[in-house]
Amino acid sequence: MKRPWSSLVAGSIAAGFLAVAGTAMAANVLTKPPTDFKKVSTLVKLPDFLPGLGTLYVNPSTLPIGPYLGYDHKGHLANIIYMVPTKDIDAHKNFEDLGSAASGVKINHTDIVFNPGHPGVEEPHYHIIEWLISPAAVKKDMQ
């Protein structure tokens, strides 16, 4: 049975909260991505720091969905991002068990933002951004 978009989003957000509830947080992920994660700017032509998102790292085997780990200018983990193509949403595709690289981190809030495409994900998609910092801190520290 296919699930609607709202269900997909709810599932993704739920996954984030499950991460919060987890107890096996990677010890260093708050300041250092896992060793199998690569800086996105080394995989595609993009600047190291993307205004509004941070310095992104991803395990290439999980492209394009992610999770991506976004770090602020000081090297602190600021968000966990999933990039979901709209065609997959239209096809009612499910994404389950998207990894636990950031299990145990505390989520402050979640943004779901449309993006028309960018290097690496060259098709319209949604960014599901689970922020560890407040909306005010996003505006202040992530530009």
Binding site: P116, G117, E122
Partner: peptide
């Protein structure tokens, strides 16, 4: 535009 061809750019 390479990243946005699918978006009609």
């Amino acid at each position: 535009c390479k990243p946005h061809e699918m978006a009609g750019m």
